[in-house]
Design a protein around this nucleic acid. Structure first.
Lengths: 365, 365
DNA sequence: ATAATCTGTCAATGCGTATTGACAGGTTGT
DNA sequence: ACAACCTGTCAATACGCATTGACAGATTAT
């Protein structure tokens, strides 16, 4: 039975004041650590607050303060484990900094509709977030595509809310991004070091930096042939989906073996998973015939078989950095017109074969 | 350069009123579709609102209304793709119903700390959510474990906020849960139909319902030996992690082949992935030596190789159902003391071998 | 024609908090 | 002893909106 529906009114600062025998002002002072409160009074108020279970009403607080102590986060697709992990990290960093966390999500389908990004952003602005953190959606090859920065600027009410961009270097109030070229180079060097000479890359939009690094890394290790590119312009997901990987893998498996690459760099691990599934389905051996390298190295990557080498993306560090930027900005420790920029190096190449702890416990029924 | 820092004040309903030559009251009426506004006036106000880019201030609105038109969602671990997908669905359903969506996330580590659940809930209550949706955290085998319902009741301010529980049948204001037994039965019947006779199950807490269904399904198909259970009480993740699967798989692979099961049911696909990885690493062939069935059948499951049969969990339907319950409750169409209960059937068994569209496009560099 | 009703608008008020300026009582400086 | 300064406290106000009750003008009923 579900019985606790008595409409117990939430205690207000006035209730606390009455109980503590002071004015509401003093309660507010105590809650905000205002210095001019006598220690004894402070104690009494705190006691009363605890006794009543008082929690300041956030709506009233934001109303009067004009800011909400909230940082909004814009994420396209939580089904992408990379974004899911990042969201998790962002929330923790934001909370640790004493801010509230507000999420706005979507799907790639919805995302591509015109106006959707704007309305997602409105959603955050309406709640009076003090800052917005968004993944870069820049698509150099689709100039008309959704762009958080423009979307924000175009909102009448958004002119004042700073935007912090994750993933690529954009001139917002701040940005934190990976050294994608370095990541690509790791992949290129690895495949070359494994003796692969006929390289290829499966990517979607925004290939340039990672792909260039990849080519460079391969070249450094003596690969002369420029890696070939497979991409799928029909894939909505800016960063490539598993399905896209599968399609690409199917095409590659269908090539005459002389033209087939023997080493593949994939934009991220899900793409790689799709590619590998397709290759296997069509009788191509992995990694004997084609070695595959992914990107991101999220925890579950190590459980893929055949195992997958992957460039380790320091998501956590990126998230902490961008939140630190936002906090610095909001506390005014920053010239308002400066852009804070952080480029972060990849953590290295993580090899799938590094087996997890083999330490089990079982139990008979 | 980042220049848009002019502190353009947000327009208020007063600004709109002035521009439209009416009182603020009328603006409020228009924004809320109050009937008593002349069509001509309504038009003028709307025009002015659009011109100024006016959006009602949500903080002020919640303050005066005493409710926030917001539904809060509590999720333990976004890194679990199942929860990530569900969160996505929940957000969409909530938005579609005209409510705002507020997320509170955590990690399993943090979750197990005492008081963490309470503070996560406080976080939602503080923002004045009108209702809370949470996944069931019931762990029959760990009676002291975190329990959203108790946590909510214990909050001084929470007595009034209805809780809706996803996943299992709990007596909150409402719940929507899968017919886990039916799901287990599908798995049992499938393995038996494949000729497997020595079955096993890898699960964590809350095995009972799925496991019982599994046994029943197997028995119906003539499997006489009761399936053995592997579990790992040290695994924090209530529903089992990939790492836990790997550990279990290692143990199973280490058994003398006479004792080894030839069919395994895993609590969900990530566990299955871990199990399979371990089996392969130790030279056990999948599915020749051991066939594995998972649970959830999230989109990327179909890209696992060797392919994995999986019980299709109608996450979307569950999410829509629970949101519908919450909305019904909040609009008063429900007896306040009634519990709305929905049991939902699994969608069937999805087979990994059903290949995705083989339709590719490639492009030379 | 007057009363009764209806329409559309508005001024006033309250939601719960943060903040300001006033002020009473105490302390220090001369 | 009086002024100048601190220290704590409080009453009053504003934040942006929704809502109520009043009211003027128009319409209908008697």
């Amino acid at each position: 039975m579900w019985e606790n529906l008595v409409l117990r009114k939430q205690p207000t600062s006035n209730d606390v004041a009455r109980r503590a025998g002071v004015s509401q002002t003093v309660v507010s002072f105590v809650m905000n650590n205002h210095p001019k409160v006598a220690p004894e009074t402070r104690r009494r108020v705190q006691e009363a607050a605890v006794a009543l279970g008082y929690r300041p009403n956030l709506a009233a607080r934001s109303l009067v303060r004009g800011r909400s102590q909230t940082i909004g986060v814009l994420v396209v697709d939580l089904n992408n484990p990379f974004f899911a992990a990042a969201t998790q990290h962002l929330e923790q960093a934001i909370r640790a900094a004493g801010y509230h966390f507000l999420l706005s999500t979507s799907t790639w389908d919805a995302w591509s509709e015109p106006g959707h990004l704007e309305s997602a952003m409105d959603d955050l602005l309406l709640r009076g977030v003090d800052a917005i953190i968004s993944w870069s959606l820049r698509e150099p090859e689709r100039p008309g595509a959704a762009d958080p920065l423009n979307a924000l600027k175009s909102r009448k009410s958004g002119g004042t809310t700073p935007l912090f961009v994750l993933g690529y270097d954009e001139r917002a109030a701040g940005c934190a991004y990976l050294d994608h070229a370095a990541g690509g180079r790791l992949a290129g060097r690895h495949l070359a070091a494994c003796g692969r000479r006929r390289l290829g890359a499966v990517v979607n939009f925004e290939t340039s930096t990672r792909y260039e690094g990849f080519c460079q890394g391969a070249a450094e290790m003596g690969v002369t042939e420029k890696p070939r590119v497979w991409r799928d312009p029909t894939d909505l997901d800016t960063r490539g989906s598993t399905a896209m990987g599968y399609r690409a893998g199917t095409v590659i498996a269908g090539l005459p073996s002389a033209q087939r690459p023997d080493g593949l760099f994939c934009h991220h691990d899900r793409v790689a998973q799709g590619v590998i599934a397709a290759l296997l389905d069509h009788g191509v051996r992995v990694p004997e015939d084609i070695a595959v390298v992914g990107f991101d190295a999220l925890p579950d990557t190590e459980y893929l078989r055949p195992s997958l080498a992957s460039v380790a993306y320091p998501v956590d560090e990126l998230c902490q950095t961008i939140v630190a930027q936002a906090v610095r900005f909001l506390s005014g420790e920053t010239e308002p017109c400066d852009t804070q920029i952080a480029q972060i190096a990849p953590l290295g190449l993580r090899h799938g074969q590094s087996a997890p702890l083999i330490h089990a416990s079982s139990d008979k029924e």
